[in-house]
């Protein structure tokens, strides 16, 4: 039962932190790595093809940050989840469990805002 509650604290903290960190990673370009699928290479950190080549040649080596953003959020959320799992159980009673769906819903709205440039083209 104790381990069940510790896992619940981990899972709830992980879900909230993942959503928040994903939006931060996406907004600030904090990708743990960049994937170049046409070249079959993965580079640590955030890279842009247009920084080293003419933007019109961008299609030759399109970069993918989604995997890197997801890895950034997962790594940070895992650390937050572990810390939450170590907290005493009585602390979690003060915590409103609804944050676990409010935070992702807010994160999804933030992603809509970050995606608006596509709709202005």
């Amino acid at each position: 039962m104790t381990s069940t509650r510790a896992f619940r604290r981990f899972a709830f903290a992980y879900g909230i932190a993942f959503a928040v960190l994903y939006v931060i990673a996406r907004a600030r370009g904090l990708a743990l790595f960049t994937v170049y699928p046409s070249l079959g290479i993965v580079l640590p950190g955030m890279h842009r093809s247009r920084d080293v080549a003419d933007p019109v040649l961008d299609f030759l080596a399109p970069e993918m940050w989604w995997f890197g953003w997801t890895a950034t959020a997962a790594t940070g959320a895992f650390a937050v989840g572990l810390i939450a799992a170590l907290f005493p159980d009585r602390w979690s009673s003060r915590f409103w469990s609804g944050w676990v769906w409010v935070a992702p819903a807010a994160a999804m709205l933030s992603c809509v805002y970050l995606t608006l440039p596509w709709f202005r083209l």
């Binding site: 069940t4 896992f7 619940r8 981990f10 899972a11 709830f12 992980y14 879900g15 932190a17 993942f18 959503a19 994903y22 996406r26 989604w66 953003w69 997801t70 959020a73 997962a74 959320a77 989840g81 676990v100 769906w101 992702p104 994160a107 999804m108 992603c111 809509v112 970050l114 995606t115």
Partner: peptide, 18 residues
């Protein structure tokens, strides 16, 4: 948006399951 939502959903799975 699909990529973003799917990633956020992945993060939710442990909480959903528990």
């Amino acid at each position: 948006l699909k990529e973003d939502f799917v990633a956020i959903g992945l993060g939710l799975l442990p909480a959903y399951w528990t």
